[in-house]
């Protein structure tokens, strides 16, 4: 009951999803849509549980007065403002959009832009050209970066003006993206896909059961 029924449900939903996608019959397509709707209905509950866990974690921080506990109140403030305005009014409401555009979007973009600095310092440490592979990676990254901005072509035209190719930085960048980059990406995609398929088969057949957790 505690393990066999979940395994059976996993098998049933897995098989239904595979079979309905291969069958064009209207009844089969109806089942397919209904199962997708079920998934979309069940998913929000997982989000609510995750939010409950987040609230629990921050409540514990506040109760125990751990270091920087005051910032947990800021988490609650942000969440409460968005939920109290957003749930009754909906995400299309102008107040919710104002909060989204003037608070969330700027912070999101700034957080990611901050990575420009850290990625540069990480690159300095990681890309010291010690081996042939590291050198290849470094040179490719440099060409792709220089080919992305107009100054790259300007440098190419000034320094490598004797070459019979104008605006070479952007052209070489495009060639790298279109040929060797595509080849390696396809290799990775094929490898990952075969892994996904084999793992999915193991899950559906009940060979892989780690998602059930421990206990009986």
């Amino acid at each position: 009951m505690k393990r066999q029924v979940p395994l059976a449900l996993c098998f049933l939903f897995g098989i239904v999803m595979i079979l309905t996608q291969f069958s064009p019959h209207s009844y089969s397509q109806g089942v397919y849509r209904e199962v997708i709707n079920w998934n979309l209905i069940i998913n929000p509950f997982a989000l609510i549980l995750a939010v409950a866990t987040l609230i629990q974690t921050h409540m514990t921080r506040i109760q125990r007065r751990t270091e920087h506990w005051q910032y947990s109140l800021v988490v609650f403030l942000g969440m409460a403002v968005m939920v109290l305005i957003g749930i009754p009014l909906g995400p299309q409401n102008s107040y919710v959009e104002w909060l989204y555009n003037n608070l969330q979007v700027p912070m999101d973009a700034t957080m990611f832009s901050l990575l420009a600095f850290f990625i540069a310092s990480a690159a300095y440490r990681a890309f010291r050209a010690r081996t042939f592979e590291a050198t290849l990676l470094l040179i490719t990254a440099l060409i792709v970066m220089m080919g992305n901005v107009p100054v790259g072509d300007l440098i190419w035209n000034s320094v490598l003006s004797w070459l019979p190719m104008e605006d070479g930085a952007s052209k070489v960048r495009q060639w790298i993206l279109d040929i060797p980059n595509l080849a390696s990406r396809r290799g990775i995609i094929l490898g990952v896909s075969l892994g996904v398929i084999s793992q999915s088969i193991r899950i559906i057949l009940g060979i892989e059961r780690s998602y059930l957790g421990g206990g009986d």
């Binding site: 998913n43 910032y71 403002v81």
Partner: peptide, 24 residues
């Protein structure tokens, strides 16, 4: 730290709003 925690709270809140209004 203030901005970081506010960002977490707002993002979670917005996810709840979107999930409820566009899903549930």
């Amino acid at each position: 730290r203030f901005a970081e925690h506010l960002f977490i709270g707002l993002s979670v809140g917005y996810s709840i709003v979107v999930t409820i209004h566009q899903g549930f």
